[in-house]
């Protein structure tokens, strides 16, 4: 498996405040990885370390098997999609063509047209959705092998968000070889659509990582009459137990659905799964699923 981004025991501190603690993760080639976690969990720090805007306090991060910095191969869209407000859409495309050796002008123009942008418009007067579409067009026209996106859809309305994600997935499907994407977002329903892997960060640590299909297929909620967790079959690994006077609710990890007339076992759903890992007591970057992440194929 080729890892495009590989972090080992990565630490980053701002003064005395830890922003990222003991982060070890691997982003396989051709995957779309979602970064999720509360504000201040370390998502932006990780993205900025990956594109070389920040340097680690300790530990290593490698991109394409080398220290970050091969900027021609990496596209980065920072939070709030910064553009030059006094320049027009066409100016931005000309700038992109001058600054990037692998610039695909036809692609940039097609994307701008698809998004319905007026080339003569100054970008300071674009809507949030239009700015995001232009930033994406600029990022993909440099034909990056790795695309880093920091909360690209946070400020967008649902329609603009969907349009942005459609454009992003079109890029992933068209790129040869298939591009690798690392994006952060609070919107789990979006991540469930577009990502195949998920990394859950909280309090500067990786709390869980794995393939989304595997995470969904192995996490369940089990509701039963009140009983102790240790009376459940060994095939059910109890992550959390909650009891009322009469009822017990368990969050469990299991290889498969297990039927029993004495309980109801339901899929947990990504949102509850992520909330569980975010709020679980701080364990040193315990992987949610110890099995290796399968490599996407095409």
């Amino acid at each position: 498996m080729t890892a495009i981004v590989e972090a080992r025991a990565l630490h980053k501190r701002y003064g005395r405040r830890p922003a990222l603690t003991d982060c070890t993760l691997s982003v396989p080639a051709g995957s779309v990885v979602g970064l999720v976690g509360p504000n201040g969990a370390g998502k932006s720090t990780l993205l900025q370390l990956a594109c070389g805007l920040l340097t680690p306090t300790s530990g290593t991060i490698e991109v394409f098997g080398a220290p970050p910095g091969q900027l021609a191969r990496v596209g980065f869209v920072a939070q709030d999609t910064p553009l030059y407000p006094a320049l027009t859409v066409a100016d931005h495309l000309r700038l992109g063509a001058r600054l990037n050796p692998r610039w695909d002008a036809a692609l940039a123009e097609r994307r701008v047209r698809q998004a319905g942008l007026d080339p003569a418009q100054k970008t300071g007067r674009l809507s949030g959705g239009q700015r995001a579409q232009l930033a994406l067009a600029l990022a993909v026209a440099k034909r990056p092998e790795l695309l880093l996106l920091d909360e690209p859809v946070a400020a967008l309305d649902p329609l603009a968000r969907r349009a942005f994600l459609q454009g992003l997935m079109e890029f992933v499907a068209e790129a040869e070889p298939q591009a690798t994407v690392l994006l952060s977002s609070h919107l789990l329903s979006d991540l469930e659509r577009v990502c195949d892997h998920l990394v859950v960060l909280a309090d500067s640590r990786v709390r869980a990582q794995g393939g989304i299909d595997d995470l969904l297929a192995t996490h369940f909620r089990l509701t039963t009459a009140r009983r102790d967790a240790d009376t459940l079959p060994a095939a059910l690994h109890v992550l959390r137990a909650e009891h009322t006077e009469r009822q017990s609710t368990f969050t469990v990890r299991a290889e498969a659905h297990l039927d029993d007339p004495s309980w109801v076992m339901e899929p947990l759903g990504l949102e509850d799964l992520v909330l569980h890992h975010m709020s679980a007591p701080s364990a040193p970057s315990a992987p949610a699923d110890p099995r290796p992440v399968p490599e996407p194929q095409r």
Binding site: S31, G167, E170, A173, D213, P296
Partner: peptide, 18 residues
Amino acid sequence: KVKDVAAKVAINPNTVLK
């Protein structure tokens, strides 16, 4: 086509392939 599903439904092409 995988590419068309990805772009239309806004879904990961790996998911469609799978």
